[in-house]
């Protein structure tokens, strides 16, 4: 009996939280369909829904372009970090050399440096290289936060069964072959977990794209939405429509990928 009561209370609280979390998103979608004349009416059904704001939003913001830009940059940073960290973790676990502790410290020590604090030198560097407003300029400064990737991959590689590696050596496999053919396939769960985490982190990055891009060519989602803050005031209707449009691919993707994304965290062995 008490268990039933506890269950009911728990669900009530959880549903309340879920409602509070989902509400801004739902309200955005509702607003995006409201005609301008009833935009400020709290009643969601004050007037027949319209697609006007979507038309206006699509005319002002190249939605596909900014979503693609954000996805490309996030994927490039994720793949880049994974590649660098996998190689480094291999060196750190499969070789013994004098500088090993120092190298490990240098890589994991990046966790001590907050990336946003480096905007001034990053900006100077990227502008000197002529890489402002380019994908390379967006990706490069974000590559170095390798701490998490190196830490987790090293941990997993160290736990890799020695017998397998030895057997491969006996069979004449080179170290590179061992890494690519034996270790990487077996480290898939942690690789995808780290990849997804880095992807999400880059997807959420606002400050650097704000500084490194101008115009829409390389703008990310968050930077692109600023076309609705005009000198003639904030265009709420189109802004809500655009927010819906940029969130849409992600939400659809997430619904399909939900198991994998959640599993990635579940299996990453972050504990």
């Amino acid at each position: 009996m008490r268990r039933v009561a506890a269950r009911a209370v728990a669900h009530a609280c959880l549903l309340l939280i879920a409602g509070a979390i989902a509400f801004p998103v739902l309200w955005t979608v509702v607003t995006s369909f409201k005609p301008t004349s009833v935009l400020y009416d709290a009643n969601p059904f004050a007037a027949a829904p319209t697609l006007d704001h979507y038309q206006s939003a699509l005319a002002s913001l190249p939605v596909g372009r900014v979503v693609l830009n954000t996805a490309l940059v996030s994927a490039a940073v994720a793949v880049g970090q994974l590649a660098l960290a996998t190689l480094a973790a291999f060196a750190l676990t499969q070789y013994r050399f004098r500088a090993r502790p120092a190298a490990f410290a240098a890589l994991v020590g990046t966790a001590l440096v907050p990336q946003p604090a480096l905007i001034v030198p990053h900006y100077l560097m990227v502008s000197r290289l002529g890489l402002l407003d380019s994908y390379a300029g967006l990706v490069l400064p974000q590559l170095a936060s390798l701490a998490l990737a190196v830490f987790l991959l090293r941990q997993h590689m160290a736990a890799f069964p020695d017998e397998l590696i030895e057997a491969a050596h006996v069979a004449g496999a080179s170290n590179l072959t061992i890494l690519l053919r034996i270790m990487v396939p077996n480290l898939r769960p942690v690789l995808s977990a780290v990849g997804i985490v880095v992807f999400i982190q880059t997807w959420n990055e606002y400050l650097w794209p704000l500084l490194a891009t101008s115009g829409m060519d390389r703008a990310t989602v968050q930077v692109g939405l600023r076309v609705f803050q005009t000198e003639q005031g904030q265009a709420w209707g189109p802004l809500m429509a655009a927010a819906t449009l940029v969130a849409l691919p992600l939400l659809i993707g997430y619904v399909f990928m939900q198991r994998r994304v959640t599993d990635a965290f579940l299996r990453s062995g972050i504990d």
Partner: peptide, 9 residues
């Protein structure tokens, strides 16, 4: 959900 929605959005 909110983890996937960028902060500015």
């Amino acid at each position: 959900l909110p983890v996937l929605i960028p902060p500015a959005v």
